[in-house]
Design a protein around this nucleic acid. Structure first.
Lengths: 190, 190, 190, 190
DNA sequence: GGCTAAGCGAGACGGTACGTCCTGTCTTTAC
DNA sequence: GTAAAGACAGGACGTACCGTCTCGCTTAGCC
């Protein structure tokens, strides 16, 4: 089968994403111009526009390329409180770091004006988080909650951290762990 | 209270904020230009620059001017579960409406790149919400939690809603009410 | 005989020159892009760049390919006034037609910035005209002018027509004929 | 109702025309970019686009601003041969100089693609030349030619020089003078 | 009759310039 | 005496082409 020969340059792709990441963390989202990315990447502007439809998508691609934002899936030691508590702690450590917080804020802003970016952000970041936590929760036989209740609990845990970061408020590993356990206790008590 | 500028034209001020709100909801944050605001408000650009330092602050001012985003403070009927459940439901109704969601998203984006706007957003929006819920919680003698635990619970409730809105996911009055009650149960069980 | 390029595609060569001519007369010299020529000719850009060094040369080639710009050499009936008058009339008819005028203007513009094109234009267009007229003039025993005087007369006749065309002014067969005869009378009277 | 205040900056206007002239004579018409003009003039691009609709008009404006291309009107000493011969000599000296020739070639090219520029070029350059010569000719009682014949003669004289310049051929003051006298003799002999 | 290298179509690449839009400042005019 | 109108220097936008560079495919021309 003759696939249409697209021959995209991998060198250019990587240089563009790297340059975007660097400029983003150096000067912020608002200051990021396509021209500056092209110049730093040693690439023509058209090469960027050929493969990314707009700034928001490029930003999301660049930030999500480095997939260190989310933690690994929670373990299943049999103790769902411990497992999700630890998982929340890891997530808080990641999102609470200066770089993680900056990344989250920029992703949020980039998603505001572009539906496609929003979808992508959810698919690559918040979606997996929800699924990870949800799966662990569903596997806990001692927490007989409905699917809707589990989703609520997961979103409260994640939302707590996202809100703290967006509001420039303190987010510690310990705080997140305690928060998660407390929410699970609420689920158990329901 | 700072002294009001002596000769500032109230007519111009209102026209500018109105025009900003209209354009914001018509075309989105990214498309908003000072020139368009000036044109629609029938005002010189300089008049905008004279009173607002940048676009983000103007946007925050315009969106927060209409203070229907947050609900009234929770009542104190003696039943903290009912009171905060109802309060969360009101908040969800506000944030979950198309206009409320759009406002929240634009405020979040505007706050990303501007420290001053971020501060202002917290002072006028998230701060009061936190204080309202916290105060009601502190008054509940049957929920003997620490201050940190109360703050966590409040932020989980608010964060849940903010996250749902930013992720373009469903946020219902009923879901928020249930969520709030569940979090409080967790607090109680702690 | 110069060595012909061994495997040059005649099909492509003709398609390119045809496409160039069509685009030139449809949209003008300024609008002509190599990419458009390649697209219309159904040819890769490289095929154009392989055989023509730049746009000006391609334009000259395409316009001069159709060698209907200049008339046949003047006859020699013994009456130099009649012969060159008729010749000038033919030339005026050719240059004065909408297509001929457009061609002359575009050739002139193309030659402005490129020395090679200018040389080529003279070699293929103005040079032969000068030679034709000069030869007929030199053969006229009743016009005993110097070579320099003959060249001046010829250039006045040709220049008259070129100037009229470039200045978007009327150029008729009859006017050109009369003009030529008048110039020759001046030569005779000298 | 407020009258539209236009307040064009003379400083910018002059800087732009100067920069255009310098770049034109330094690098040629084809190489002239609006960006380079703006940069050299210390002006924003928009300031150029605000007042000139396209490159051709700007070029014509800049080149014609310096009105040293054409000579003064021919004197009337009573001897039309001497007067127009001298006038043609002056014109040849002007057009035959390297700078004059370059100017004429660039003006011609600029006028090719833009009707407005062509009109303007005629109005400021070739038109006045035609009128000057025509007026002197009409005043010569010993040359009883028709208006059409006079126009033909004038255009032959001017066309001769324009053609020589565009064809990169020699144009001397003496040659032009002789040519003009010869054409006038033809008129006289008609 | 098969091999092989040039020419070919296609189109991505690093770039330059386009013409437009907007920024934030400054000046002029009118109420 | 403030504010509208809007020109200004500047910078980024997203587009159009430039001329160069592969990529496979086709085809001519010599073994």
């Amino acid at each position: 089968m003759t696939e249409a020969p697209r021959r995209r340059s991998e060198r250019a792709r990587v240089a563009i994403l790297d340059a975007t990441n660097e400029l983003l963390h150096a000067h912020g989202l608002e200051q990021l111009s396509i021209e500056a990315v092209a110049a730093r990447a040693g690439v023509g502007k058209q090469t960027i526009y050929r493969w990314w439809p707009n700034r928001a998508v490029l930003v999301a691609d660049a930030l999500l390329e480095r997939d260190d934002l989310g933690p690994a899936a929670p373990a299943d030691t049999g103790d769902v409180f411990a497992d999700l508590g630890r998982w929340a702690g890891h997530l808080a450590a990641s999102l609470g770091s200066p770089r993680g917080a900056a990344t989250l804020r920029m992703l949020t802003a980039a998603a505001t004006d572009d539906e496609e970016t929003s979808r992508r952000l959810h698919e690559k970041f918040s979606g997996p988080l929800q699924e990870q936590a949800n799966a662990r929760l569903a596997a806990a036989s001692d927490l007989p909650a409905t699917a809707a209740q589990r989703r609520n609990a997961v979103d409260a845990i994640i939302g707590f951290m996202v809100f703290r970061v967006l509001a420039h408020q303190q987010l510690t590993r310990r705080g997140a762990t305690e928060m998660a356990r407390s929410v699970l206790r609420g689920l158990q008590a329901g």
